[in-house]
Structure formats: structure tokens, C-alpha cells
């Protein structure tokens, strides 16, 4: 096995991890603040992909320019769902929340199936089929741009959570909602805001992913397990942990393809998952450093 092959696998894993990170960050933020396991997160990404498809093919706008506007639209959709549905479920009733988000996921999937049909909808840009080839490596430009955009957004999210009053309010609510309410934080509004940020991030991820993967109503199924693996690996509720978890998932998937038959790629992922949880049941960043 040549050094180039190993480097190619590492680069491929990092690119994958960068994209997974954006998805996982939104999911873990929602869990950390609201204690809601959002099974519809991948479907918000899928809706973002279709929204990008419509605007990119209809108006000719580049998907990368659409990332923030579509993130905003998905955040608004998140607000409607959080206020209209999630906040009406009694706090702590995890079964109801779980079934509710699962229901939202099915509704969104089938709605897109009715509106767009089952045909995959590719968004082809000049960079979709282009490759950057430094040091004999092959890096798909669409994946590279998606990963870089994802990293920029992750930094912005980190700054938002650590440097702004609203971000700090979210972290306080995540740590102790009763105490947060006691110091004047509007917990209900913070919950809705966390859900908006989470769904917005999924929408942004959708606009980035659709540049190299076709939009389809069932595309979320390919990502949802990966998202959950990343956030459990990183420690439920920790954005930094979810990011690290996403990179671990990407790298394990990519490198295991070198050492084992490709069919065992995801088996290896679960082996690593179990091993990490055996050593650190709370995940890499669990409990001690939430949000």
C-alpha cells in the first residue's frame, strides 16, 4: 500500500467528517438544550437539498451562495415546528418527543415524494465533476468546498455559543434550565432558538451536500445513523464532541476501506464505536463540557 493511497484515504475521511460535523452539530445542539432526540434532523437536510435544487436550477444561483438563505428558511420551519409541536409536548416525555420527531420525519419525506416524485434531482455545477489534484491526490472540489464551508460555519457556531449573550443563555439552559430561568433567561424562547439553529444547520448542510449527491426524498436515511453515531461518540449534547465524533466517523469509514473489504466499512465503524464507549461511556466530550 503506497503512501499516496493512505493519504488519499485520510483526506477522503476528513472531507467526509467535515460534512458530517455540520449535521451532527445541529442534532447535538437540539439534544443538549432541549433534551429532544430529533429523528427528523436528516429530513431537514433533505428539505434543504430540495430547496437548493429548486433555486439553483430555477434561478441559476450557485448552491454555495444559497447556503445561508436556505439555512434561514429551515430555521423558520424549525421555529414553526418547535412552537407549534415540540413545545406542546410535556417536558421530559421522551417517548412522545421521539414519536413526534419520527412523525415529522415521515411527513417531510412523503411530502417531498409527493411534490418532487422519487426521481433523484442532481444539482450540477462546474465544480461537481472537477477534482483538485495536489501531490497526486484526488480531491473532489464540491466536497472540498462543502467541507470548508462547514468548517467556517462550525467556527461561527462556536463563537456564537461562547461569545454572545444568546449563545451563553443556550449553554446555561442546557446545563440547568431551572437555574437559567431563575436568572432571567427565557427558557422556552431559548429552546425554540436552539431548535431553529439546529434545523438551520441541517438546511445549510443540505445546500452543501446537494452539490455532489442528488436530492431524493429518502436521502436522509443514508445520514441519520451516521449523525447519531457521531453525537454519541462525541458525547450527547456537546457540539465540540459531535464535531470530533463526526471526524472520527469519516476517518474510520475511509481508512477501514483500505484495510478491510468495503462491505465491512460500517461494521468497522460500529466496532470503533463500541470500543470508544467501553473506555468512555459518556463519549469523548460527554457531560463535562456540554454545548
Amino acid at each position: 500500500m503506497s503512501l499516496t493511497t493512505i493519504l488519499q484515504a485520510i483526506v477522503g475521511g476528513l472531507l467526509l467528517g467535515g460534512i458530517y460535523a455540520l449535521l451532527a452539530a445541529g442534532l447535538t445542539l437540539i439534544f443538549g438544550v432541549m433534551r429532544v432526540i430529533n429523528f427528523a434532523q436528516a429530513e431537514f437536510m433533505m428539505v434543504g437539498m430540495f430547496a437548493t435544487y429548486v433555486l439553483a436550477t430555477g434561478l441559476g444561483i450557485d448552491p454555495l451562495l444559497l447556503a445561508l438563505p436556505i439555512g434561514g428558511i429551515l430555521a423558520l420551519l424549525g421555529m414553526v415546528l418547535a412552537q407549534g409541536l415540540l413545545e406542546r409536548v410535556p417536558r421530559g416525555d421522551h417517548n412522545a418527543q421521539l414519536i413526534l420527531t419520527l412523525g415529522v420525519s415521515l411527513v417531510l419525506q412523503n411530502l417531498m415524494l409527493v411534490v418532487f416524485g422519487p426521481t433523484p434531482r442532481p444539482v450540477v455545477r462546474p465544480y461537481t465533476n472537477s477534482y483538485w489534484t495536489p501531490f497526486d491526490l484526488f480531491i473532489n472540489e464540491a466536497r472540498l468546498f462543502a467541507c470548508l464551508a462547514s468548517l467556517v460555519i462550525m467556527v461561527a457556531l462556536y463563537l456564537f455559543l461562547t461569545r454572545t449573550w444568546t449563545g451563553r443563555a443556550m449553554r446555561a439552559t442546557a446545563d440547568d434550565p431551572v437555574a437559567a430561568g431563575g436568572v432571567g433567561i427565557n427558557v422556552r424562547r431559548t429552546h425554540v432558538l436552539a431548535f431553529m439553529v439546529g434545523t438551520g444547520l441541517a438546511g445549510v448542510a443540505g445546500t452543501l451536500i446537494v452539490t455532489f449527491t442528488a436530492a431524493a426524498p429518502s436521502i436522509g436515511n443514508d445520514f441519520i445513523i451516521i449523525m447519531f453515531l457521531a453525537i454519541v461518540l462525541g458525547g450527547l449534547g456537546s457540539v465540540a464532541g459531535a464535531t470530533l465524533g463526526a471526524f472520527v466517523v469519516g476517518l474510520v469509514q475511509s481508512i477501514s476501506g483500505l484495510l478491510l473489504p468495503l462491505q465491512l466499512q460500517n461494521v468497522m465503524l460500529f466496532v470503533v464505536f463500541v470500543l470508544i464507549l467501553l473506555v468512555r461511556p459518556q463519549g469523548l466530550f460527554g457531560l463535562r463540557q456540554r454545548v
Partner: peptide, 9 residues
């Protein structure tokens, strides 16, 4: 096993 995560390798 589909989906293939990266075709380049």
C-alpha cells in the same frame, strides 16, 4: 454495501 462513501479509493 450501498451507499458508497467515497469512490476515489
Amino acid at each position: 454495501t450501498p451507499p458508497l462513501t467515497d469512490a476515489i479509493p
